[in-house]
């Protein structure tokens, strides 16, 4: 059984960058990796595919295609299997339902989520509706990670996600800090992680190199393998692949959360 993880966090906090760099780092280590983008924007795997956009499951469904695995699974950096669920244009339809439908399709037709060592679900935003927890509810995820910075709003979102996870009786296996340069950031996120019953797995410093590589369509692992930031992602990848038990998180109340960000 592969390690199946979901990365949650506030929109724009860097989930896709983290997911694709972790995927690339694990591929470097010789692991077979599958990454599944659950965001309607379908940008989770783009930096593993040299900037190429792949057809999403929802695109094909809309066109009335009888979907086979080879239509939706694309080989990216070092054989990382890339899939994008996609979804409707902003403001119409129901992206959550799209995820539910895509997940049941994947369960039926995809070997890429079974014959592999690591499956990463890159899930958009906070847990906003039933659809966005479909990978967890349908039993396709056995570890969850929360990505946040040390600022109040991303932490607020992270805490909300912990609420969702505890309702689903899903374990939280680690908190990752993607730094935005807030004061005492590592300390704040580390304390948050401890208080919800988890631990800080990595502190990813703000580095313009990540954006530069992304703009060209690459992960830093591929484009700048010897950089410091690449080493941070490698360390995080190793930590994720190592065996670790998670705990069902205990969310904080809002007063405590506010207090925490004032350290």
């Amino acid at each position: 059984m592969p390690k199946q993880i979901a990365i949650y966090g506030k929109g724009g906090i860097g989930k896709s960058s983290t997911a694709s760099n972790v995927a690339a780092a694990c591929a470097d280590e010789g692991y077979r990796v599958t990454i599944i983008g659950c965001d309607p924007k379908s940008d989770s795997s783009i930096t593993l595919l040299q900037g190429r956009r792949i057809p999403t499951i929802m695109d094909l469904m809309r066109e009335g295609i009888d979907i086979k695995e080879e239509d939706i699974v694309f080989n990216g950096y070092k054989g990382v299997k890339c899939l994008e669920i996609g979804g409707p244009e902003p403001g119409i339809g129901c992206a959550g339902r799209g995820i539910i439908v895509a997940i049941s399709l994947l369960k039926k037709i995809s070997r890429a989520i079974e014959d592999t060592d690591l499956v990463i679900y890159d899930v958009p935003g906070d847990i906003v509706c039933g659809g966005f927890v479909a990978p967890v509810k349908k039993g396709l995820v056995n570890e969850a990670y929360v990505l946040t910075s040390g600022e109040y709003m991303p932490l607020y979102a992270a805490n909300n996600i912990c609420k969702g996870l505890s309702r689903l009786e899903m374990t939280l296996n680690g908190v990752i800090c993607n730094s935005r340069g807030a004061l005492n950031e590592e300390k704040i996120v580390s304390e948050f992680a401890k208080e919800v019953g988890s631990q800080l797995l990595a502190f990813i410093p703000k580095d313009v190199l990540v954006q530069t590589c992304e703009r060209d369509g690459y992960s830093v692992i591929e484009k700048a393998p010897d950089s410091q930031i690449a080493a941070v992602y490698r360390k995080l990848a190793k930590s994720i692949m190592g065996k670790r038990d998670g705990k069902i998180p205990v969310p904080l109340d809002d007063a405590r959360l506010r207090e925490l960000t004032r350290i």
Binding site: P55, L60, E63, G64, I65, D66, I67, K68, D71
Partner: peptide, 8 residues
């Protein structure tokens, strides 16, 4: 190549 279902 993806195969389109026959239009119903």
């Amino acid at each position: 190549m993806p195969v389109k279902k026959e239009k119903e």
